[in-house]
Design a protein around this nucleic acid. Sequence first.
DNA 1: CTTGACTTTATAGTTAAGTGTAGGGTTTAC
DNA 2: GTAAACCCTACACTTAACTATAAAGTCAAG
Lengths: 136, 136
Amino acid sequence: MQGGMTIGVIARREGLAAETLRYYERLGLIAPSRRTASNYRLYNEDAARRLRFIRRAQALGFSLSEIAELLALHQNPDKDMLAVKDMAQTKMAVICRKIDDLQRMKQGLESLSEQCPGHGPTAECPILEALLKDDV
Amino acid sequence: MQGGMTIGVIARREGLAAETLRYYERLGLIAPSRRTASNYRLYNEDAARRLRFIRRAQALGFSLSEIAELLALHQNPDKDMLAVKDMAQTKMAVICRKIDDLQRMKQGLESLSEQCPGHGPTAECPILEALLKDDV
DNA sequence: CTTGACTTTATAGTTAAGTGTAGGGTTTAC
DNA sequence: GTAAACCCTACACTTAACTATAAAGTCAAG
């Protein structure tokens, strides 16, 4: 078995399950560089680099389909890096909105929590009362 | 059809789909106060209050199963409001961690975006290069 | 008395990113 | 030469919160 890593070897090296690699292949994210006579996938260092790309891009909040787009942009010499920068900035905007939403949730929980004495029957719990109250 | 709202009426009033109400019922979140002779669900104001409870609790980041717990706490006179406060504080901690994660993503995207001149072939894009680079 | 807008149940599909299984073939180590 | 560990495909399952469908029954208006 020379000239490449089998799926188990590269998966172990990159900290993924072999099925995850096959899944990524179905999505068009990575393909083995070739197959053995017995149809085993063989991967090279380029595949390992792509897997690290995927991991890092996921850590920045990109979905697998967005990562496929990013990889396609990288592959295509006619494309401009503006497209990449645009994706990064769009993603930043999405993340900022999520942060805002979460901060609003946090503040809501904080102010309700402050009103709760912390003991007594739940029927008098100010948190539950606030959630149940009639006014919209 | 007196003495209650049919599923379509309360759903429209609360801005939900009727199927969502049936779904909530399967999860044990709300039940109609009674059924007509022809087996139609009938809801009262209490159900409407519960639906608003669900909506507000969702807006604070609680899952439907957590909301079921909250409603059960409210129903049970033997329970203490400490349990509610604990859930609120646990949820706050979860939200804080999510905010941290997102802030780290945002900073990563920001610093990569700053390095990108914004035009030129994608092969030279510093964002893609950073994601692809060999060192761990 | 029929048409259309409701309602009922049970069941299946959606999204994202995997994970698990069945039923087979292959390679490696002893 | 055989057992363990690996690989193949195809398909089903997972979670959360819905959403949609089919096939049937009910209700209100004209």
